[in-house]
Simulated scan of single mutants.
Amino acid sequence: MDIQREREAFERLPLAELAIKSEYVYYNEETNSYWPNEDFCPSDAPETMNFAWKAWQAAKAQAVPEWIDYTKQSPRIDGRYQIFISGEQITADWQSPFGFSDPVEGEALIQGLISHWGMLPEPPKPQEPTND
């Protein structure tokens, strides 16, 4: 995730944009968080901005896989990954030194057709039953 690009997109949200333009808060690169402008800041502005910023980053990290160019780097750990092969996104198994294979049939995929790979997203966590 390109943090600068994501921060710029986050700051275009109406409430974030208002807080920035009103100079209630400013972004601190070292801490990757928003700090209050001591001269003029509502008390909850930094806390609200940081809560929203952390939620934005978490959602982006889950929703958008980071794609790695397969011609430059292959996975280092055997396992299941997302890949782009012939312009289609599928799930495949990686086994070093053999490459990617079909996870159901176990057949080797044509490695030259694979352009990118990425980690699979975290599986959903089961919900606990409610006591209604």
Rank of each mutant, 00 (worst) to 15 (best):
74 S>R: 13
92 A>D: 06
81 Y>G: 06
105 E>D: 09
67 W>N: 13
96 S>P: 00
117 W>F: 15
116 H>K: 04
108 A>S: 14
83 I>L: 03
61 A>I: 01
81 Y>M: 04
64 V>P: 01
116 H>P: 01
104 V>Q: 10
73 Q>L: 02
106 G>C: 04
65 P>G: 02
111 Q>R: 05
71 T>N: 11
78 D>V: 03
79 G>I: 07
68 I>N: 12
71 T>P: 01
61 A>D: 13
115 S>G: 10
112 G>Y: 07
87 G>P: 03
96 S>Q: 10
94 W>Y: 15
113 L>I: 05
94 W>K: 04
89 Q>I: 12
94 W>T: 00
100 F>H: 06
106 G>K: 08
62 Q>F: 07
62 Q>L: 12
86 S>H: 06
103 P>L: 06
60 K>T: 09
80 R>V: 08
91 T>D: 14
79 G>E: 10
116 H>M: 02
72 K>Y: 04
106 G>R: 09
70 Y>R: 12
99 G>K: 03
120 L>C: 11
97 P>Q: 10
76 R>M: 03
63 A>F: 06
97 P>D: 09
116 H>T: 00
92 A>L: 05
89 Q>Y: 02
117 W>H: 07
86 S>R: 13
114 I>N: 01
102 D>I: 03
103 P>Q: 02
69 D>Y: 08
100 F>P: 04
117 W>N: 07
112 G>M: 07
72 K>R: 15
108 A>Y: 05
68 I>L: 12
98 F>P: 01
82 Q>W: 05
106 G>V: 09
94 W>C: 01
102 D>P: 02
94 W>E: 03
121 P>H: 03
84 F>K: 09
105 E>S: 15
67 W>L: 11
61 A>R: 15
100 F>C: 09
114 I>C: 03
97 P>K: 10
67 W>S: 14
99 G>I: 00
80 R>F: 08
110 I>L: 13
114 I>Y: 03
65 P>L: 10
90 I>S: 08
69 D>G: 02
107 E>Q: 12
81 Y>V: 02
76 R>A: 11
108 A>C: 02
115 S>E: 11
94 W>Q: 01
99 G>N: 03
107 E>D: 14
96 S>W: 10
112 G>W: 01
74 S>V: 15
62 Q>M: 11
82 Q>I: 01
107 E>S: 07
75 P>A: 06
